[in-house]
Nucleic acid binder design. Structure first.
Lengths: 334, 334
DNA sequence: TCAAGGGGCTAATACGAATTAGTAAACACT
DNA sequence: AGTGTTTACTAATTCGTATTAGCCCCTTGA
């Protein structure tokens, strides 16, 4: 159309016409006009092959991106990711082609397309350790949302500082007169749960108050509704130990226990360490706890990833502060 | 390592050694052994470049996919799209960066990345006719979610059969004794609204009952809350015409009118022809109407698009049946 | 002995951009 | 006029794989 060579188009397209290689402004305009008219876009695949990058960021989730049930757990993260992608001028590629094996998506599989993108944001409660190790070994650019333990090397991540948040809650409880606390939950296996429990255990021992660990009453991990029929049992153990403040790993567990105690007319302080999976408070009680800065996590993950891709990584492991929620359920000990 | 050519490796890798091109079993084993030893994996990028397509499906929305407010509207479509993408082994490229010109997003603009993908799903209440025409003219593969009129040629779409749904509701109203009906809404400009009104008008005239058309009281299109302060006016016209059943294009309009009539203690049947924009019924009345099969629309759009891309299009214009909601607001005429 | 007919493999090319070496033309300066 | 120097571009190569035309060698048959 313009009578120029492919090389010229490439140079114009990549805005290199001002540096070492120069193109006359008129020629450049002619090319740009033709591009605008035809809507031409460089093939990302060829681009990636030739240049090694294509301004596409992959988003890999271990569950569906657009979930049916647990209303938008990912949503806030994605808002942050999308915002940053837009300002960076990158497109987002949802790696939905990864097949589900044994109930979870696998990154590595025959025909995995991770390399189509310049880098990848990993989203999921728990990431497979072996896959992380392989990502590191293969030298692929990626960031995990949520802290991860080393996997044959340090894993780049942007996580929430659960340990600090829980610690702050414990401090508050102690300030309110509680000296007999309990952590209700598994404390694992994902790093996020472990961090919460560590925050509890460390703070309790450093403050010299009593802190016990209660496993949730419902052992089945797939069971919904948290504590389920076992609230009564948990309650018994809480009473027996003389606990006056409970830190519930799972929001639903905390809610159930709170309502149980309230029905019995016994005062019990509760802090929940996870956000409700479903929006809309069943009861309209605001639970004490903290808020995970999801949107910011998404945005910062993009920052880390960009830096990684461009070869000047700074602070590839970040923990963001959670916002404390005072709420109504963590109150002075009577 | 094995002393064979790159071509041989490619052939072995793709298991073509039994067809037209043949490789001796011993050679094949030697290659396979070397592959196993080195852990070699074909570069997916080069693979895609050679293959000519990239198994990327673009998703174009006239608004951001992840904004907090209107995500609920798109969500079900996206669930369907993602599900199908997964089973088709495609990745999804979010084309959210379209700039807003004259109050609406444009597909074609400087730097649009539409051609990145093999094809594209278009999502939005109303699509620009010229842009559709250009998509057709350029021979780009795409499907619209929602029926579209021809734009210099037939537009591939997967829509909801609003005409049939409204028709069914009108039939029900007549069966319940109503003979004086009204359609409350613009009946345009988008195809989806026109279809609803056509369903009403056609059915009313074929059944030989009276059916009038009432424009919504709030003329400003941007105004939220539907009928707003104009309910009273609408109500006057309904009374004056002796209408006993109203078909409200906009959900909010229907709700407002229903409540107005209820307050006055006058029986009035209402059917709403659009789903509420915000979840959570303000009042806990279940309105009569229908449900749009959004998730299925998303999935079938992917089917149509895939067929289009692969060059064997079948049924590129589909209307899916809506599920009728009996509800409590369309009742027997007293 | 020579042609015909496979089997088994490779050289060459395509895919679509990015990059680099190089070249022609214009210009500057002695 | 001769010798740099700059400007503005293009030809050629590269990335890693898929594909195809074709080559060589071994059989077979007359």
């Amino acid at each position: 159309m313009t009578g120029v060579s492919q090389a010229t188009v490439s140079i114009v397209l990549n805005g290199r016409s001002e540096g070492e290689v120069r193109i006359a402004p008129e020629t450049r305009d002619r090319v740009l006009r033709a591009i605008a008219e035809t809507g031409y876009v460089a093939d990302p695949v060829a681009r990636r092959l030739a240049a090694g990058h294509n301004r596409i960021i992959g988003v890999f989730t271990y569950e569906s991106v657009f979930p049916t049930s647990n209303s938008d757990f990912y949503h806030p993260f994605l808002v942050g990711i999308e915002q940053r992608a837009e300002s960076l001028g990158s497109d987002l590629l949802l790696l939905t082609s990864a097949p589900v094996v044994d109930g979870r998506r696998r990154i590595f599989h025959e025909g995995n397309r991770l390399r189509l993108a310049d880098g990848c944001v990993l989203l999921g409660r728990s990431l497979d350790r072996e896959e992380l190790a392989r990502l590191l070994a293969d030298g692929l650019h990626f960031v995990s949302i949520g802290r991860r333990d080393d996997a044959g090397g340090p894993v780049p991540y942007v996580g929430a500082d659960y340990a600090a948040a829980v610690s702050a809650l414990v401090h508050r409880a102690v300030r309110l007169g509680h000296t007999n606390l309990a952590y209700l939950g598994h404390g694992g296996p994902a790093e996020s749960w472990a961090d919460r429990m560590r925050g509890f255990t460390d703070t309790v021992s450093s403050l010299g108050v009593q802190g016990i660990h209660l496993p949730p009453a419902t052992p089945a991990p797939a069971a919904v509704g948290g504590v389920g029929g076992g609230v009564a049992e948990v309650w018994e153990r809480v009473r027996a130990a003389g606990v006056t403040a409970v830190f519930a790993e799972d929001h639903a567990d905390g809610v159930a226990l709170y309502q149980h105690a309230k029905q019995l007319g016994v005062p019990l302080s509760i802090a929940t360490l996870g956000e409700p999976m479903r929006p809309g408070n069943e009861s309209n009680v605001e639970f004490s706890g903290f808020r995970i800065p999801r949107q910011r996590m998404g945005a910062e993950a993009m920052d880390v990833l960009t830096a990684l891709i461009e070869g000047n990584p700074t602070q590839t492991q970040r923990l963001l502060e959670c916002e404390l929620v005072v709420g109504e359920t963590l109150v002075e000990r009577k």
